[in-house]
Write a protein that binds this DNA or RNA. Structure first.
Lengths: 223, 223
DNA sequence: GATAAAAATAACTAAATAGTTACCTTGGCG
DNA sequence: CGCCAAGGTAACTATTTAGTTATTTTTATC
């Protein structure tokens, strides 16, 4: 069991070129894993397919990352990190609360439409009852900055009385995300049941505007 | 390929007892399939496990239902039907629109909290890009009566000016469902990220009230 | 160039899996 | 009883799969 990772070897005297070497290999493997896992789910994904996608031998894949579960967790952390990184680029302090809230809503929806791999991996992790994420020692890092952002914008809007009071930021976060998540994640079954394609640009924009209307409509102060 | 289903044999002279016979066997198989598929997903589910759960031999399972994909589709149709059947019991005509809408919202949320197998199978069908559902010759039967109910209640509420105008019933349906779906389906990852259990009675009731508040808040007419 | 460690490959293994085949059991009916 | 078909079982097959081992190639350093 004492498998030394090839990445642990002392760095060579020459700098490692950007497009090769152990670190780059690991990146390529994780990218390939995200793609395969997102398309097939954990049980449906094939380790051989991931190796092939990464253009690497299976033996090296095991050396770099470990077994299939470790691969899943690394891929899951990767898609979370990617979203968190994007979330952190949001700059809302200068915007008035109503506008800032709209930016948050649209950002979330667009992220979900553009990153089906994020939705697919989250769904499958939930099928596995979140056991991998619970065992991750990096969960704390994956905590969404969005919740803090929402809290801040919400508080500002409540002070200036453009938003209603007594709104739990976590509930609002789950609602904001859920309104887009279900539409994106379940587009195929919705499409089959309604006999209507939902992946056109028009349908997606219509949905985005509806989500903004729902959240902003809800947040209007009581008369 | 000419496999005669055992169910096709002429009925015996004695009546088939309720708890045995081909029809009952098929029911038991489908129940077992729903459970196994919901826990493991399509790729993770094992045909042997389904046969064992149903207390039936694999040979008979193949005779009664067909291969794994046919089993999946039959199970998927079954969970849809179950929800549609429940939806049809809603009796909203007598209720004033605001109350009727709340009943719809709560019904949906409760159904999702109480039927994780419905969510799990829908998620996995979407991972498979809805291909099985699209090939089903029974999709039309699976169309949700909820959409019609929502349309009716919405129209009544708009006439009496308790609801805002210009609301697309399909968007409202997707929102109503999505607000609860995400919370239920992703409870494990949400729980891990927020380091907070979401499956207690209190948390579920809090969420239900929030969903009601969001939808009803959105539906308030503009001032 | 020699050497040794690192990196990569292909071939292998043991277990699991969807689907099938050959065979056995039961019960109704003349 | 004797027959036969429906209903059922166990053992099998061909393939696939995660994970490993034996071996070769590459690279850095002297």
């Amino acid at each position: 069991m004492l498998k030394r990772s090839p990445a642990a070897r002392p760095a060579a005297s020459t700098d490692i070129p950007a497009e090769s070497g152990p670190v780059a290999s690991r990146e390529r493997i994780l990218d390939a894993a995200v793609t395969e896992f997102a398309e097939q789910g954990f049980a449906g994904a094939r380790v051989d397919a991931i190796a092939a996608r990464a253009g690497i031998n299976k033996r090296m894949l095991y050396a770099y990352v470990g077994n299939k579960k470790a691969l899943w967790l690394a891929a899951l952390e990767r898609v979370y990190e990617a979203k968190r990184r994007d979330e952190r680029t949001l700059n809302l302090q200068r915007l008035p609360p109503a506008e800032a809230m709209q930016v948050l809503i649209r950002f979330n929806f667009r992220y979900h439409t553009q990153h089906p791999e994020f939705l697919a991996m989250l769904n499958d992790e939930n099928l596995q009852r979140g056991q991998n994420l619970k065992e991750s020692h990096r969960v704390a890092e994956l905590y969404s900055p969005l919740l803090t952002l929402i809290s801040e914008v919400l508080a500002r809007g409540q002070e200036t009385e453009v938003f209603r009071r007594n709104v739990d930021p976590m509930q609002l976060y789950i609602s904001m995300v859920g309104l887009g998540y279900f539409f994106c994640s379940n587009q195929h079954t919705l499409s089959a049941i309604f006999d209507r394609r939902l992946d056109s640009v028009e349908e997606v924009l219509t949905r985005e505007q509806h989500i903004v209307d729902v959240v902003m409509g809800f947040l209007r102060p009581e008369r």
